[in-house]
Simulated assay, not measured.
Amino acid sequence: MSSSMATVVLIGVGVVLVVASLLFFLRPRWLLGWLKGMAVFAVLLLGLYALTLGITLTRYDALEGMQTVARIGTVQAGPQRWRVTVETESGAPVQAMILGDQWQMDARILRLAGPLRWLGLAPGYQLERLSGRYTSLEQERNAPRSVIGLSEASWPDLWALDRTFNLPFIEGVYGNATFMPMGDGAQFDVRLSSSGLVAVPTNDQARQAVARWGQ
């Protein structure tokens, strides 16, 4: 299609759409009916969104200030092989084999934004995964990786949708603890605030592992 022909087509489509829309004003009942229908549809969408948001928040644990959300214990099972136990407040302990020299925990944080902030609802959190990492850059690139899921997938996933499309009235925040060293018999507390995770050594083995790691 030539440039001039495309221009003519666009102008013709524009005229048809403008005339069709003006016909609504010649028939006020049609216009009022259309406006009422759109208003009802908007209210329906808003209600469905509020319902989905409320159901989603029931799957998250409430976050009140800085609090301990998990306890991590590591026991060496071989060279760069660690049996890790994750204890949380809301579920049974999870045991997994992690490969590497360090561990990291990730969490999802979902908080209300905009006008809904005035509801005073505490942000919700969901522990997402535990992963291992090698100190050696070559191993990190080529050696087997360990990633352990700590939560089940749900639909609709408003946290992921907000990260992609910036949904209204909510903020999906990604929190992760700094990588911490493994240690035989080491124990750590994982603490969470609305801005992220912090790992704290809680016994001598963990503190010694952190001291060696920092040298």
Rank of each mutant, 00 (worst) to 15 (best):
M180G: 12
L10C: 10
Q208D: 15
A143V: 02
D204K: 11
G12I: 14
G54H: 08
V173A: 01
G73N: 09
W118H: 07
L127T: 05
L35E: 11
A209I: 02
A107V: 11
L192V: 10
V43Q: 12
S154I: 05
V8Y: 14
P201Q: 03
I109D: 03
V190G: 08
R71G: 03
N166T: 08
S90F: 01
G78E: 09
M1K: 04
V86W: 02
D61R: 03
T135F: 13
V40W: 08
T58K: 07
V40C: 10
A153F: 08
T7P: 04
A177K: 04
T164M: 13
A62E: 15
P144M: 15
Q102V: 04
M38T: 05
L161V: 06
G149P: 09
V13Q: 06
E152M: 03
Q104G: 12
S151V: 01
T68I: 12
V40S: 09
P201W: 13
Q208E: 13
I170H: 01
N166Q: 11
Y134T: 14
E171M: 06
A20K: 12
S4H: 10
V15F: 10
S21F: 11
W159L: 13
M97R: 14
L22R: 12
R145P: 06
L35P: 05
P144N: 11
P181Y: 11
G78A: 09
R133N: 10
V75M: 09
I11N: 12
L130M: 13
F24R: 04
V15L: 15
P79A: 10
G78I: 06
K36Q: 10
V210G: 05
Q95N: 08
T164K: 14
L31I: 06
L48A: 12
P115M: 08
R111M: 12
L112Y: 03
S3W: 07
L99S: 14
M38A: 15
A70T: 07
D101A: 05
S193F: 03
A153V: 03
V210A: 07
P168Y: 07
A211P: 00
L46Q: 04
L121R: 05
L63A: 03
R29I: 10
G132W: 04
F41G: 14
Q80L: 14
L46W: 11
L63V: 00
A50M: 08
A186D: 06
Q95E: 15
Q104A: 11
M105G: 12
G47F: 00
R141G: 04
W103K: 07
W155K: 00
V198E: 14
R129I: 04
T85W: 01
R81C: 03
Q95H: 03
E89V: 12
V13K: 14
V16Q: 08
A177S: 15
R212C: 02
E87G: 05
Q215D: 10
L112R: 02
R212P: 00
A20S: 07
S194C: 01
N166D: 13
A42P: 00
L137K: 06
V15H: 07
T178R: 08
P181R: 07
Q215W: 07
S21D: 12
P115L: 10
I72C: 06
L22A: 14
T56P: 01
V9M: 11
L53F: 01
A42M: 04
A122P: 03
F179H: 03
R117L: 11
L22G: 03
S195L: 08
L45T: 02
G12V: 15
R59P: 04
R145Y: 06
D162N: 06
Q104R: 13
L32R: 13
Q104E: 15
L112D: 05
S194T: 09
